[in-house]
Computed example of a mutant assay.
Amino acid sequence: MIGGGTGLPVILKALHKKNADITAIVTVADDGGSSGVIRDYINVVPPGDIRNVLVALSNMAPIYKRIFQYRFISTDQFFSGHAIGNLIIAALSEMNDNGIFNAVQELSRMMDVEGHVYPAANEPLVLNAQFSDGSVLAGESEISAAEKTIERAWVSGSDGAPPRAVDEVIAAIMDADQIVLGPGSLFTSILPNLMISNLGAAVCQTSAEVIYICNIMTQKGETEHFTDADHVRVLNRHMGKQFIDTVLVNTEPVPADYMDHQKYGEYLYQVKHDFKGLREQGCRVISNNFLELRDHGVFHNGNQVVDELLRLTGRPLSWFDGEFN
């Protein structure tokens, strides 16, 4: 799976319950919240998305996961709002001379992670965007806050050189049975990974089925008024080809007035469907009820999505429950 944000761990947590060989490739272009503050203080890859993925795939006891995820509520100027796991990842990055990739592998062993967690690059990246009015901004949080129509996104390394994914990331993509993109913010969680040149090329060249889990809601400052076909058009345009094989689309309506838009202010309206537009881009469309409503928010139902992903492998679902092992 390739992505970042809050949607990726939901699917990974459900996959973790199954007999699936999982590799999560996680964005390193986040510059908001605790991750952004740590990145400003210490020149390390932003740890937040990596932290959540590690917890989703960890076999540690629940109490240790809660400690790792604990976020300080102190009024201390530095620690307030920071998750303990973010600080641990930052510390391991400083201790490891070979970058964040090896640090995350070491932490994966410490946390008894089942599967692989790979940072998309071995250095912190900067997300850049050009808007429809021709203006350009750098930084994920700045881009989202601009509330303009994004025409093009790309990433740059800290030294100005084009970023590269490490060999293990490319090998995982080429050896996979499925490449799953999302769910997650189109421009700030998914595209930053694909814009790493050798990573994006590998996704286009692999013989694996490339599956896109379309977002349920449009997102302020990113995908306002987008249909599901618009999401795929953006991905295809950035990669220069129609590379998405299958799209998972939620068709269950979100009840009116259910969502708390103060709490989830970045999400606007339910994504509209354009099945004709998807098919014109060569996509197989799988539509179903993938909706989970909780805490007055709208989420993907991880179990429903994972069942569909496993069906696409051609194996019976019972195989993943260990019946054939």
Rank of each mutant, 00 (worst) to 15 (best):
P183H: 03
T6V: 07
E209V: 10
A61L: 12
I63F: 14
M239N: 14
N250M: 01
V247F: 06
G115S: 07
V113S: 08
I211D: 05
P253N: 09
A145K: 14
A165P: 10
G314A: 01
G277T: 06
I100C: 13
A256R: 12
S144A: 11
M111D: 07
V180D: 14
E252R: 02
P162M: 06
D21P: 02
T23E: 02
D307A: 12
F68K: 07
A90W: 05
M174V: 07
Y267N: 13
S189I: 11
L186D: 03
A83C: 15
D31P: 00
I211V: 15
L125H: 00
A121L: 00
L12E: 05
A176D: 06
V271I: 10
N19S: 09
K220N: 06
Y269W: 05
F68C: 11
V298K: 05
D260H: 13
I173H: 05
I38Y: 02
R66L: 10
R279K: 15
L191W: 01
A90N: 08
S108Y: 07
V234Q: 04
I170F: 03
L248R: 04
E114H: 08
M217K: 04
E140V: 09
V117E: 07
M195C: 12
P183E: 12
I22F: 09
S185M: 10
V203C: 14
V104L: 09
H300D: 02
A91E: 07
Q69D: 15
E266V: 11
G32Q: 04
G160P: 01
V249L: 10
S93L: 07
N198Y: 04
F324P: 01
V298I: 11
N52H: 13
E308W: 01
S189K: 03
Q130D: 02
I38S: 06
A138M: 03
Y70Q: 13
N96Q: 06
V247E: 09
S135T: 15
I2H: 00
Y258D: 08
L137R: 07
T313I: 10
S74Y: 04
K220I: 00
L57T: 02
D40G: 14
A90S: 15
E140S: 03
M95E: 14
A56W: 06
F68T: 06
S93N: 10
R152E: 09
R294S: 07
F78Y: 11
T218G: 01
L181T: 02
L54E: 09
S135C: 07
G134A: 08
I196Y: 04
E323S: 13
A129F: 01
Q219N: 05
P316H: 10
M174T: 09
K17W: 03
Y70E: 14
N303Q: 14
E140R: 00
N198R: 11
N122L: 06
A14H: 01
Y70A: 10
L317W: 08
R315S: 03
I179D: 03
F68D: 00
N215C: 11
Q304L: 11
S93M: 11
G221H: 02
G3S: 14
M217G: 08
V271N: 00
F187V: 12
T75A: 05
M239Y: 06
I170P: 03
T188H: 01
Y264F: 15
E224R: 10
N301I: 00
Q205G: 08
P119R: 12
D159F: 03
V254H: 02
R152T: 15
R284Y: 03
D260T: 13
D49L: 12
Y267T: 10
S93Y: 13
A129D: 05
D177H: 15
F320E: 14
I150R: 02
D31W: 01
N193D: 11
K18M: 06
